[in-house]
């Protein structure tokens, strides 16, 4: 495990922000920390990136202890925070070269990587403009590019698309997917279920400083169960008749039949309907969304 954390606790005054968080991320995988505002996502990231000391608990990144070897940890990670960490009064190029130099790349390597990343993120045209003239999406891209300059082993993305318009968000997702393809390990935080569902191999659901669930998106959806077959009828007579022969919950003209999601069960349901001369207008299979999971587990 390239990221390992055990029993992380952190309080600010009387407010417990983290109440014992365990995490592990496999090399080359993407973990999403999903949770509402104030769940402790940013605090977790700050601890793992050596910016905040936990009150108790331990964490290692690529084998380095975040408390005892912070400098080594900083050498293998990069952090892209919630607010674009860029110098407004430097140009995009100057920002990139500066971070490259601070990551102790040679002057020439820093310049070469800068050119590559400007190209990769479509910022070449804007590279000699001061960042204060950039749009929000461009800043985030520059921010991410700055994170990548020294090929970090683990990338931390704290709400990478927070506050972006849909087009910029989609561009950001593409950039992240690209990184994943290159085999970079990513730990990202998000409030958007769609984002976690789309980008992450594993999701950890955080609420009020503790982990309430974790697993793949599919596993989480299965965990709260509730897969069902929706049968929509055109009239109430048919609906009530169907409700008489199949156990389910009626919701307006829809009969929701609990299901295990197998084809055999769907067959069985359709057979029962046919044997009773019933023809629903529509049949659909419904799996819970991450929204359902989220609400069920954090409510």
């Amino acid at each position: 495990m390239i990221v390992e954390a055990t029993g992380l606790k952190k309080s600010y005054g009387a407010t417990e922000v983290l109440t014992g968080v365990d995490l592990s991320v496999a090399e080359g995988s993407v973990l999403a920390l999903l949770g509402p505002n104030g769940a402790g996502k940013t605090t977790t990231v700050r601890i793992l990136t050596t910016l905040t000391r936990p009150d108790s608990g331990t964490a290692t990144i690529a084998g380095y202890d975040v408390l005892r070897e912070p400098a080594r940890v900083r050498g293998v990670i990069s952090l892209t925070g919630q607010f674009a960490a860029v110098d407004e009064n430097q140009t995009g190029r100057e920002n990139l070269v500066m971070v490259g130099r601070l990551m102790h790349l040679g002057r020439r390597t820093a310049r070469r990587r800068t050119t590559e990343l400007l190209e990769q993120f479509g910022l070449t045209d804007a590279m000699d403009r001061r960042v204060k003239t950039y749009s929000g999406g461009m800043r985030r891209k520059l921010d991410l590019a700055m994170s990548l300059i020294a090929h970090p082993q683990v990338i931390f993305l704290d709400e990478p698309t927070n506050g972006l318009d849909p087009a910029s968000r989609s561009a950001m997702w593409d950039a992240i997917v690209e990184l994943v393809r290159d085999g970079t390990t990513i730990l990202l935080t998000t409030q958007y279920l769609e984002e976690a569902d789309r980008l992450a191999d594993r999701i950890v659901l955080l609420d009020q400083g503790r982990i309430v669930a974790s697993g793949t998106a599919d596993a989480l959806k299965t965990q709260i169960g509730g897969e069902r077959i929706e049968l929509r009828f055109t009239d109430e007579v048919q609906l009530l008749k169907a409700a008489g022969v199949l156990s389910g919950v009626v919701d307006q003209l829809v009969l929701n039949v609990p299901s295990d999601g197998t084809a055999a069960h769907l067959h069985q349901v359709l057979d029962v309907l046919r044997d009773n001369g019933l023809t629903p207008e529509r049949v659909s299979s419904h799996r819970p969304t991450l929204d359902d999971v989220f609400l069920a587990l954090t409510a």
């Binding site: 910016l51 990069s78 952090l79 925070g81 960490a85 601070l102 700055m146």
Partner: peptide, 13 residues
């Protein structure tokens, strides 16, 4: 008080 300081601090400097 800007985001920049977090970046600088997360660098090995």
């Amino acid at each position: 008080n800007s985001g920049m300081i977090d970046r600088l601090r997360s660098l090995p400097i």
